[in-house]
Nucleic acid binder design. Structure first.
Lengths: 113, 113
DNA sequence: ATAATAGGTAACCAAAAGGTTACATATTCA
DNA sequence: TGAATATGTAACCTTTTGGTTACCTATTAT
C-alpha cells in the first residue's frame, strides 16, 4: 500500500524533478528538448529524471515523429494526497489543530520542563 | 520557496522515515528506543533517520532525563499540501478533473495516431 | 558507588543516485 | 540522398545515502 507509492515519493524528492513537473504541466505535450532547455545539466541527465517520473507515472509520454510528447499526470499526487488525508485527516480538520495536537501530546507526557 | 521544502520532500522520500512518522504519530512523546524497536536495522541508523526528520521539522523532540521524547509535527506536511493545492488547485477541484486534464492536453496537441 | 539503561559521536564502508562522454537510431528538411 | 534534429543506449565516474561497529556521556536504579 505505502510501498506502491515509494516511487512517487522518491520521484518528488528531487527539486529537479519537481521543476520538470512544473515545466511539463505548464506546456502539455512538450518535448524532451524543451524540458532540457531549462536545465544546465546535460540532456541525458534530464532524460534520466524523466524516466524516474514516468516510472512513478507522474509523467506520461507518447512518441510523435522524432520527438516525444510529455504530459503531466497528477493522479499519483492525488493518491498521496488521499493517503495523507486519510491517515492524518484528524490533524488537517482545521488549520489550528496542528498546534492543538502538539499541546495535547505534551500534556499527556508529564514532561519535566 | 520550493527550496525551503527540499528537506521535507527528501525526508518523506524514505519508507523508513515515513514509518517513523507513523510510529511517533501513534505514540506522541515516545523514546528513540521505542521507535528503534520497530526496525531491524541498528539504533544508530534509526537515529540518523530521526535527525533528518528533525531537520525537516517533521519531528520535534525534547530531552527528558536520560531519554528523549519525540513528537510528530504535521506543519511541514501542511505546507507541502498548501504548495501543491495552490499550484495544482485547478486539477484538484474534483476527482474527475485529473482525467479531464489529460484529455484536454492531448486534444491541444494534434497528436497523430 | 556501581550496574544497567538511553542516547550521542566518530570513523568507516557498500550501494545507489546523479552526472558525464561517446555512440546509435530514427525522422524530417533541403 | 544527405545533413540536421531529437531521442535513446552504454559505459563509466563521483558524491551522497544508509548502514555498520566501537566508543563516549548522562541518568537512573540497586
Amino acid at each position: 500500500m505505502a510501498d506502491s507509492m515509494d516511487v512517487v515519493f522518491e520521484a518528488l524528492a528531487s527539486p529537479a524533478r519537481r521543476k520538470i513537473l512544473d515545466i511539463v504541466k505548464d506546456r502539455p505535450g512538450c518535448s524532451v528538448k524543451h524540458v532540457a532547455g531549462f536545465f544546465e545539466v546535460s540532456r541525458i541527465a534530464v532524460m534520466k529524471h524523466l524516466q524516474i517520473l514516468e516510472l512513478a507515472d507522474l509523467i506520461v509520454s507518447e512518441k510523435d515523429g522524432r520527438s516525444r510528447r510529455l504530459f503531466f499526470n497528477c493522479v499519483p499526487i492525488q493518491m498521496i494526497y488521499d493517503r495523507w488525508t486519510s491517515e492524518y485527516s484528524a490533524l488537517w480538520a482545521s488549520n489550528l489543530t496542528k498546534l492543538k495536537y502538539r499541546i495535547e501530546s505534551r500534556e499527556k507526557t508529564h514532561g519535566r520542563k
